[in-house]
């Protein structure tokens, strides 16, 4: 795996299964790596290879799913489909070097903090020796970067939370956390897009749906977007419920 000039210093490509390969990026800051993941995603959006099914970005990696049967059709049988995919992905990486990424969009998400919507706000405040208002302010003061979407439809993995409001997960996970709940787990914050069991500290809730069943734009947030939370009242929350159509 050392035959590519691009290898070693910045990325490695290895098989995950006989139908998937992962590009793993190394040796750079998480933000720089994120730009590489986004760039490769964009190249694959614009020019997917024959036999490619889809790709899934991770924090520092990108996994491509493919159909070996499609790739093998009319191809030299001496080389494995993984080797074919590896060469294709190396080409895509080169294509990406000349690509400029579109400007990230900023999405503002209204949150009603505390009370019945954020039952753990006090716990997070107490844990960090802060007031509830301090937690709200620190949580809504920052601009977060969407590193990736995963876990559930439209669920964003956000970077940039103020570490003064970090708090461990609940000792006993809740059996049901309502969709829209805004939570903190360790040094991360996120929004539950579905009603699911979960162990995050819930500090608030948003009425803004994170996904819709439209093929063009199923997730409110995309990798690379910026997010800001802003506090609203319970009344505004109740009147603000609705579907997201476009952003």
């Amino acid at each position: 795996m050392n035959d590519s000039p691009l290898q070693g210093n910045s990325f490695q490509i290895f098989p995950v299964s006989e139908t998937a390969a992962m590009v793993q990026f190394y040796n750079e800051s998480r933000e720089q790596t994120h730009v590489k993941v986004r760039t490769l995603s964009l190249v694959l959006d614009q020019s997917p290879f024959v036999g490619m099914i889809e790709y899934v970005p991770g924090f520092t990696s990108l996994t491509v799913y493919y159909d070996p049967f499609m790739l093998r059709k009319n191809k030299d049988k001496d080389i494995s489909t993984f080797e074919m995919v590896k060469e294709l992905l190396e080409d895509k990486m080169k294509q990406g070097e000349t690509l400029s990424l579109p400007v990230n969009k900023l999405v503002r998400i209204p949150v009603v903090y505390g009370g019945e919507y954020g039952p753990d706000l006090k716990e997070v405040a107490d844990y960090n020796h802060l007031t509830e208002n301090d937690v709200i302010q620190k949580h809504s003061d920052v601009t977060y970067l969407v590193y990736m979407i995963g876990f559930a439809p439209g669920f964003p993995y956000l970077g940039g939370m103020d570490q003064d409001i970090a708090a461990p997960r609940k000792q006993t996970p809740r059996t049901s956390v309502p969709a829209g709940s805004v939570g903190i787990a360790g040094s991360q914050t996120g929004v539950y897009s579905l009603t699911t069991p979960g162990g995050w500290q819930i500090i608030g809730r948003t009425s803004k749906p994170l996904f819709q069943l439209k093929e063009e734009n199923p997730s409110l947030l995309q990798m690379g977007d910026y997010v800001q939370f802003y506090p609203i009242s319970a009344e505004e929350y109740e009147s603000g419920k609705g579907d997201f159509v476009d952003v």
Binding site: V16, F59, T63, Y157
Partner: peptide, 10 residues
């Protein structure tokens, strides 16, 4: 381990 794709049969 940072979150990344998992697949069928992992």
């Amino acid at each position: 381990i940072l979150s990344e794709a998992v697949t069928l049969g992992t």
